[in-house]
Amino acid sequence: MIAAENPFARVWGAYLRLIARFPSVGQIVPFLPLIALWALVVELGVFPRAFFPGPVDVVQSFITLTWKGILPAYLEDSVVRLLVGAAVGIAVGIPLGLLVGLSSKAHKALWPILLFFQAIGDIAWLPLLIIWFGFGLQTMTFVIVYTVLFPVVLNTVLGVRSIPLELHRAGRSLGAPPWRIVTEIVVPGALPNIITGLRNGLGYGWRALIAAEMIVGTSGIGFLMFDSRRAGSVVEILLGMIVLGLLWYAVDALILAPLERATGQRWGLVAR
C-alpha cells in the first residue's frame, strides 16, 4: 500500500469515491482549476479588463441578459433551429440511408453523389443561399438540414452494411417477410451507427448554425456574439461561447449518452 502513503493519491482516491457516489460532481470539478486560472489572470491585470473580462463579469452579464429576456429568447431561437434541422435531417436521412444501405442499385446510383455533396461543407453554400433566399431563416434552415443530413445518411448506410449476413438469413429462415427484416433486423442492427451519425450530425450542425447566425442571422446565440462584437462587448462574446459549450454538454449528457447506453452498449455491439 505504497500509494496510500502518498497524500496526493489519498486525495485522488477520495475524489474517485466522491464522483462514484455523485457523478455530477465529476462533471463540474475539472472546470474549477480552469476558472480559477482565468480569474487569476484577470486579477493580475495582464490584459485590460474590457478586452479580457473575468468569470464574475460573465456571470453578471448572464444575469442581466437573462433578466432582460434577450438570452432566453436567442437561446430558444438557436435550439429550435437545431431541433427543426435535426428533425428534418433524421426524417430524410434515416430512410435514405436504409435505402442506400439495402439496395445495391440505390447504392450504385446515389453513393458517389452523396460523397460529392458531403464534401461541399455547409458554409460553402452560404454565398449561393444568400442570393437565393436572402438573409433569414430559410438560409439557416437549409444549412442546418444539410449539415445534419450527411452524417446521418452515411452512418446509417455503414450500419446497414455492417449487419452480418447470418442475421438476415436467420430472419428469413424464421419466416420474416422483407419488410419485417427491415423493422426487426436492419433498423435495430444499424441503430448504434445511426446514433453515431446523429451525434456527428448534431455536432457539426450546431457549429454550422452558429456560423450561419453570425453571417445571416437576426437572432440566436451566433447573432448575439457577432452583435456584441459590433458593440465591443467582449463579456457577451465570452458568455455566448460558454453557453455554446454548456448546451452541447447538456445535449450529450441528457440525450445522446442515454441513447447509446440503451442500445449498442447494452447489446454488446460496441465496447463500453
Binding site: L167, A170, G171, R172, S173, G175, I185, P188, G189, L269
Partner: peptide, 19 residues
Amino acid sequence: SGPGPDRGVVFQSHALFPW
C-alpha cells in the same frame, strides 16, 4: 425456392439477434 420457416437453421456463429 428461397428460405422458409419449414427449414429451421442453427448457425455456427449462433446468429442470435443482439438487440
